[in-house]
């Protein structure tokens, strides 16, 4: 069975929520990243315990969006954040769930 990836925020990044949006700075390259309201919602749920599917479920519960779109959007954003090294994979912890 394929292991579910669980992401957590990279502890070295600086981030701040403001006015419904989120600004994230990665010290390694000093690049400023910005998340809109739904991106910020997903960012807030990233805690090392939730899977993409679980975060997508929370997104679909909060916003008017079909579950399959919520999952596709969540997975795409997580990949982008991970590619920018703003996320790291959480240490595998069997049985942990969000």
């Amino acid at each position: 069975m394929r292991k579910t990836i669980r992401w957590q925020k990279n502890p070295i990044v600086a981030w701040r929520a403001i006015d419904g949006e989120t600004v994230i700075i990665s010290p390694s390259d000093n690049v400023m990243h910005e998340l809109n309201e739904t991106g910020s919602f997903i960012w807030r749920q990233i805690d090392g315990r939730c899977s993409a599917a679980e975060i997508a479920g929370m997104l679909a519960a909060e916003y008017e969006v079909p579950p399959e779109d919520a999952l596709a959007d969540t997975e795409a954003l997580l990949q982008q954040l991970a590619a920018s090294a703003l996320l790291v994979t959480a240490a595998a912890a069997d049985g942990a769930a969000c």
């Binding site: 502890p11 600086a14 403001i18 006015d19 419904g20 600004v23 010290p27």
Partner: peptide, 20 residues
């Protein structure tokens, strides 16, 4: 807006530390 002002401030701040 507040978020816009933060985006204006960030590139104009003098800061030289890369420490998280």
């Amino acid at each position: 807006r507040q978020a816009e002002l933060l985006r204006v401030l960030l590139p104009n701040v003098l800061f030289f530390s890369a420490q998280p």
